[in-house]
Amino acid sequence: MSVTLERRTSAISGVNPVAKLATALLVAGVLVLSIDWVSATVALGLELVLFAFAGISARTFWLRTLPVWVMAPLAGVTIALYGEASGRTHLEWLFVHVTDGSLTLAIATVLRILAIGLPAVVLFITIDPTDLADGLAQVAKLPSRFVLGGLAGLRLVGLLIEDWRSIELARRARGVADRGRLRRLPGQAFALLVIAIRRGSKLATAMEARGFGGDTERSWARESHFGGRDVALILVGAGIAAAAVTVAVATGDWNVIWARS
């Protein structure tokens, strides 16, 4: 997990996180406009080629992108069964209506989720929260009080995970762990929330005692650089999006979501 603050080295790890975020949003923002298999396939194909140059090990890639590979077909099945019907009917049972049209939409849905989800995961793997916060506050000019507050909250993740483990062990010691895990979940989540808020209140005092949140203009001990590499990454993203749209429009498959039905 990138939230565990490991520093990694790979081709894109040095790129400003704001550029990665912008690229992922740019690709997603364009692909989401249409539901067709052509634009999604073009984007996905280009992305898969580029992943090879990202410098991420195959193991990491599959491990981290696994949820996307699982989710995409499931969403596809949903659309195949309940998607807008058109063309030949293959199966009809209760609300289920599988048609040529719904199957085409399903394939497009699967490809589209992959094309949107995969690059985001790959780009986010190498984001260090500290660098992201630096970038968001200095490059994207978001309000520093909120960015740094969020960052400090994020640092508590490790502690909260440890708390969670202790809470679980303690349930066993208290004699209540024979019940189902799912039924204990709300109680444990509540206990975690209490502990988290306690920690947060103390952290807030510590931060305020160090002058955080005052009226003085803040200085930055480390500069967040935004240079040629960052612009290049965004251009690559724009290139993928443009190629996808161009090919889909050319083949006549571009299918804008709000213009449908």
Partner: peptide, 12 residues
């Protein structure tokens, strides 16, 4: 500050 930090912690 405590609003920001506790909101952050709840969010996280």
């Amino acid at each position: 500050v405590v609003d920001i930090v506790v909101a952050s912690v709840i969010g996280v």
